[in-house]
């Protein structure tokens, strides 16, 4: 499933607190990127029925380079503000407490044209609102993430610098609110614009704790869903429901393109 490329890079970054609840960060990146082709000079066992697929996700049967070898010089600036951030001051520092309100991030990334031999020329902006574990008392807790972004200039950029989405096509995977559980992770990357939303609610045993023996299992019921729309993937939706015990989760879900069902299945994480 994974597709690789090679990168030689230098990165400089800084993050600082500009005001209480407001973090600013700046990153400068220089990278030289190459495509890679799969090869093998030794096999324990040659299965004639199976071949490596190429490192180009769009041409799995032929090793067509997805992009030329190129240099990218870019800068990323972001601001993250947590509404109603409270903190504790102690002699050894300032400690943020969990906020009751969402966190907002705005980000600007510029791919410089011609600077230090750079072959890219793009400008990308994105905004996100996120909040984890919003308590609803006995009803459990909710988490959500909503984001939108746009390349306001996409004169020259190559696939590694596209906006990528956290997809997944495996049955077993590590959980992450940002992840689309039924979306291919390479096919729908965009160099234009997108809107995405994710939400999950954990009932923390609200229903199952009412069933006498079952409550001993300490299972937590959860439901969730995701939405993505971009020129490459219009109106994609997914919904899932499942049970969780500590860090083990099992869920069943459905994915749709508009009203058309794409896939359904179990996910374990």
């Amino acid at each position: 499933f994974p597709k690789f490329y090679e990168k030689t890079f230098v990165n400089l970054n800084t993050t600082r607190e500009l005001a209480s609840g407001l973090q600013g960060s700046l990153s400068l990146d220089y990278a030289r990127n190459h495509t890679l082709t799969n090869s093998s000079d030794f096999k324990f066992f040659d299965n004639k029925e199976r071949e490596f697929t190429s490192n180009n996700p769009f041409t799995p049967t032929t090793e067509t380079p997805l992009f030329p070898t190129y240099t990218s010089v870019s800068a990323t600036a972001s601001l993250t503000y947590t509404i109603g951030q409270q903190y504790i001051t102690r002699p050894d520092g300032k400690f943020y407490t969990e906020s009751k309100y969402p966190r907002i991030t705005v980000l600007y990334k510029k791919g410089f044209k011609d600077l230090l031999g750079s072959n890219v020329d793009y400008d990308f902006v994105k905004a996100e609102v996120y909040q984890d574990r919003i308590s609803l008392g006995l009803w459990g807790y909710s988490s959500f993430l909503v984001g939108a972004g746009k390349f306001i200039n996409n004169n020259q950029l190559y696939y590694p610098d596209f906006k990528h989405f956290a997809g997944n096509i495996s049955t077993i995977f590590p959980p992450n609110l940002r992840k689309f559980q039924y979306l291919d992770f390479y096919q729908f990357s965009t160099n234009q614009q997108y809107f995405e939303a994710h939400a999950e609610h954990n009932f923390a045993g609200f229903f199952l704790n009412k069933v006498p023996l079952l409550r001993k299992a300490k299972l937590e019921e959860f439901i969730g869903g995701g939405y993505l729309s971009s020129p490459e993937k219009r109106n994609y939706k997914e919904f899932y429901f499942g049970l969780q015990r500590l860090v083990l989760r099992v869920s069943y879900g459905f994915a749709y393109d508009g009203g058309r069902k794409l896939t359904q299945g179990f996910r374990i994480s």
């Binding site: 030689t8 230098v10 800084t14 590694p160």
Partner: peptide, 21 residues
Amino acid sequence: ATVGASFGNGIFDLNNLGSMT
């Protein structure tokens, strides 16, 4: 405030999300 720097050469996933899944 934090300041960091890194450099290197390596093989990365094409979607840059740092995970194969």
